[in-house]
């Protein structure tokens, strides 16, 4: 990783020698694609400061604008070198957009960028091996749900169905889905807190980040419960 000073040193465009700001993927002056900067983070790719509340409509507009400049389709007839840069920069742009447009992926990415260790949402395979700790307030509901799930699995194994139990599970699933939505709202609230703290130069940083990690853990836990219900009911 480049140091903070290195990050803000401008380089010259390889083609027209105009200064190119760090993380700029093509030259503002001549439009040519630039060598990929390995240090650029996803916020920088979009010219954004590291804020969590993002207007996704303008993010999409910017994504389209940058895609028109960087996509490999535009470089089919360019030199091999430019084709490689375009491939690298376009994938960086796509990775950045994919991450920033999704609230959870964005939050996780932000925390990693800030050096916070978190379990990653995408790596579902490991979830089953190491289930996160049950959030305290959910202990009772989770216990009840697991009993019902087990019963349903046994019933279904014999090829039967139990309409009452199915209904109970669907009701439970709805409750958990509501909690999921609540957690999402809470995470967005934490974004606001953090962005405001940043703006006012007031350092609540670590405390907010820890609350984000906890909220993400909780969310992951509930999401896995909903998934288990879906799988058991085969919906």
């Amino acid at each position: 990783m480049p140091t903070a000073e290195e990050k803000f040193v401008d380089v010259a465009c390889w083609s027209c020698a105009a200064p190119v700001v760090h993380a700029q993927l093509f030259c503002a002056s001549c439009g040519k694609v630039q060598p990929a900067h390995s240090g650029a983070d996803y916020f920088e790719v979009f010219g954004l400061s590291r804020k969590l509340a993002i207007d996704t409509t303008s993010l999409e507009r910017e994504f389209y604008r940058l895609s028109r400049r960087l996509h490999p389709d535009v470089y089919t007839r360019a030199s091999e070198q430019e084709q490689n840069w375009s491939l690298r920069n376009a994938s960086l742009l796509n990775d950045a957009y994919r991450t920033l447009k999704e609230p959870i992926a964005r939050t996780e990415y932000f925390l990693r960028l800030e050096g916070v260790e978190i379990q990653e949402e995408g790596k579902q395979a490991s979830d089953r091996k190491n289930p996160s700790r049950v959030p305290d307030d959910l202990l009772e509901e989770v216990f009840e749900l697991n009993m019902q799930l087990e019963e349903m699995r046994m019933t279904r194994k014999t090829g039967d169905d139990d309409p009452d139990l199915r209904q109970d599970l669907l009701t439970a699933k709805q409750q958990f889905e509501a909690q999921l939505a609540e957690t999402d709202n809470f995470i967005q609230q934490l974004w606001q807190e953090r962005d405001e703290a940043l703006a006012s130069n007031f350092d609540f940083g670590d405390q907010i980040k820890q609350r984000m990690v906890a909220a993400l853990d909780r969310r992951r836990y509930i999401r896995n419960l909903v998934r288990d219900v879906n799988e058991t009911l085969d919906t």
């Binding site: 490999p72 491939l87 690298r88 376009a90 994938s91 796509n94 990775d95 957009y97 994919r98």
Partner: peptide, 9 residues
Amino acid sequence: DRNSTIPAS
């Protein structure tokens, strides 16, 4: 993940 815009890395 599936449905990621390509190129993706």
